[in-house]
Design a protein around this nucleic acid. Structure first.
Length: 631
DNA sequence: GAGCACTGC
């Protein structure tokens, strides 16, 4: 995502981009090719220019040119930029579509969208007939959505040819890497290389591997601080909140004791859970003569663009314990330097090992989506990087257990229930629970609960104010579990119309609560389309728990005589997470949302249920397994 | 009695 300085006129800026020189040959090639892989670093201008070039010379004029992005902010800001370059109002010729927001019209010919959004659209139109060109950008990130889209566009392309429809041009754009893999997958399609970034970055590696990367970061920061001009800011990539706050304290301490000749330093932490007001501090210029040092998680890699950064210090560490080579944050607006706190050898060796997400994640949603797309043999779907057969099988088994698919003549087919489940942007078991809810006359409540579970967390827990938090939360705590507790918080939130002061007093994250409202509206809309009754059970919370037991029976646990819990499907020992309202209680049976494998195997978000309910939900599954005892 | 990188529909 490149946003050039705004001082020069826009058409002059466009012509200064490295890609401009290559325009004639590029268009020549793209006109003839059905598939192309385009390699170019951030800064080449490929994402903003290629769609315009294609449009300007009339390639793909019969339909829409789609450009997918892994992130919402990128889709939105790129669309704004291109609309500005085309001197049109955003939403006319140039528009964007992301979840909760669709700024397109019948005039829209250049459409930026999240990859997940195009995938959703494909369920209604697997041939993607509205589109003549699909550009899959940031393909090197290998998000699940992009990976599934590879297969979807490839199939659509082939089918359209067979059916004599307008051809679909597919352009895969990547920063680097996996070129052979991309090319091979798309029938050995040609790889076109674009010249790099506008402003050079000098990259420095350490000579020796660093055992203490925090110490190395500290040394590097102060080395730069003593040598560089005070107006040149530093951005340091680190792994997490705790580490960032600790290093911030150390930096401030050391800076205090430096000689006056050194100039002062403003240290600013940046991570996602920081309140928005404090996040905005990174954009404020430091006082004259001071240097800004931003200590950030990888939130600054992609989601936030900070100007004035001249130096990047990359510790190379992320929580997933892999190298993160995305340190292209300097040099966006001017030349810059990047200090990598690892050796060039380490970089070369460890980089390609980044495993695509599709090989690491739970495939239940993906498989359900593929079936909804009408892919005939999902077990053998043409993935660019195939997930293990075990992962595919266990996903299909899970869907079978939920009644979303069934096996017929050795083939896995989608059931009517499964088809409905696929229309929700949710994990299959949540979709199933919503679909069951009218039977229990509690669809309103279940939709609210599922919406609450769809966002990060609506609870704000500052450790320093623990006692206050506990006191405030007591009012809402339900002995029936976390789902019902969340529901009562949500009901109270609605009663005060989302009042900000109420949120602050009750330690409720109002930003995430607003998101809950949006998710809830979307889920209701889908329910209406499926003719699902929206009904409330009022005070009869038992109905809600019955429904949750039915929908979530796969995640059930049973209290043992010794006071511990066993998960009913795997028989593995599990424990109630200390954050649960049921932590002190010992209910005989619970269903839970997820397992957290940390120091122990913790169940998170629990709901108290009756054994009978689980038995009713899946008699053949539980059979004689339960030690029927009432909670 | 825990442990909190980041996306997305």
């Amino acid at each position: 995502m490149l946003l050039p300085r705004k001082s020069t006129p826009i058409d002059v800026q466009r012509k200064q981009l490295p890609i401009y020189q290559a325009k004639p040959q590029l268009l020549n090639q793209l006109r003839q090719l059905n598939n192309a892989i385009l390699i170019g670093e951030t800064g080449s201008g490929k994402t903003t220019q290629i769609p315009q070039y294609l449009y300007e010379v009339g390639i793909g004029r019969q339909g829409i040119i789609a450009i997918t992005q892994p992130r919402r902010v990128a889709a939105i800001s790129l669309a704004s930029r291109v609309a500005e370059e085309k001197r049109t109002q955003l939403g006319k010729l140039v528009g964007y579509t992301v979840r909760f927001e669709d700024l397109t019209s019948y005039e829209t010919k250049i459409k930026f969208m999240t990859d997940g959004m195009l995938l959703r659209e494909a369920i209604g139109d697997p041939l993607l007939l509205r589109y003549t060109v699909v550009i899959l950008d940031e393909a090197h990130e290998r998000t699940v959505h992009t990976d599934v889209l590879f297969g979807v566009v490839k199939t659509a392309q082939r089918r359209r040819k067979e059916l004599n429809k307008i051809p679909l041009k597919v352009i895969v754009m990547s920063a680097t890497m996996d070129v052979d893999l991309f090319s091979e997958y798309f029938n050995k399609s040609p790889v076109l290389y674009l010249e790099g970034r506008q402003h050079p970055i000098q990259i420095y590696y350490t000579k020796q591997p660093q055992s203490d990367y925090l110490q190395a970061a500290l040394v590097t920061i102060f080395q730069i601080h003593q040598e560089a001009l005070p107006s040149q800011d530093i951005l340091v990539f680190m792994t997490g909140q705790e580490e960032i706050e600790a290093l911030a304290r150390t930096c401030r301490d050391i800076a205090k004791h430096l000689p006056d000749s050194c100039g002062s330093m403003v240290v600013i932490p940046l991570y996602a859970s920081l309140p928005p007001v404090q996040q905005l501090r990174v954009f404020q210029p430091a006082p004259k003569g001071s240097r800004k040092v931003i200590l950030s998680t990888n939130i600054a890699e992609t989601s936030v663009t900070i100007s004035g950064i001249k130096y990047v210090v990359d510790t190379g560490m992320v929580k997933a314990k892999r190298f993160s080579p995305e340190s292209g944050r300097a040099g966006r607006e001017d030349s810059g330097s990047c200090y990598r706190l690892y050796t060039e050898n380490e970089f070369d060796n460890l980089m390609p090992m980044t495993v695509p997400e599709i090989q690491r994640c739970n495939l239940a949603s993906v498989m359900l989506q593929l079936m909804a797309l009408g892919i005939p043999d999902v077990m053998n779907f043409d993935f660019m990087s195939k997930p293990s057969p075990e992962a595919v099988c266990s996903a299909v088994e899970h869907l079978e257990l939920l009644g979303a698919v069934e096996k017929k003549d050795g083939q896995v087919v989608l059931t009517a229930l499964g088809k409905k489940m696929a229309s929700f942007p949710l994990e299959p078991r949540y979709a199933k629970t919503i679909l069951l809810s009218p039977e229990y006359s509690c669809s309103e409540e279940v939709i609210s609960i599922v919406s609450l579970l769809s966002v990060d967390t609506v609870l704000y827990n500052p450790p320093a104010r623990r006692d206050e938090v506990l006191a405030a939360r007591k009012k809402f705590t339900s002995s029936e579990g976390d789902h019902m507790t969340l529901l009562s918080i949500y009901r109270a939130f609605k009663k005060v119309s989302g009042n900000k002061d109420w949120c602050r007093e009750n330690f409720v994250n109002s930003r995430n609560m607003s998101l809950v409202k949006e998710v809830q509206a979307q889920l209701k809309e889908i329910c209406l389309k499926l003719n699902l009754k929206l009904v409330s059970c009022g005070a009869d919370t038992g109905s809600v728990r019955r429904c949750l037991a039915h929908g979530m029976f796969v995640n059930a646990a049973e209290l043992q005589p010794d006071g511990t819990y066993l998960a009913l499907d795997t028989h593995q020992p599990v424990a109630i997470h200390p954050s649960s309202v049921l932590f002190q209680a010992k209910p005989a049976y619970v269903v839970f949302n997820e397992l957290l494998h940390t120091s122990r195997c913790y169940m998170r978000d629990l709901c108290l249920v009756d054994a009978d309910w689980l038995l009713d939900a899946a008699p053949e599954n539980f059979g004689r397994k339960l030690h029927i005892s009432k909670s």
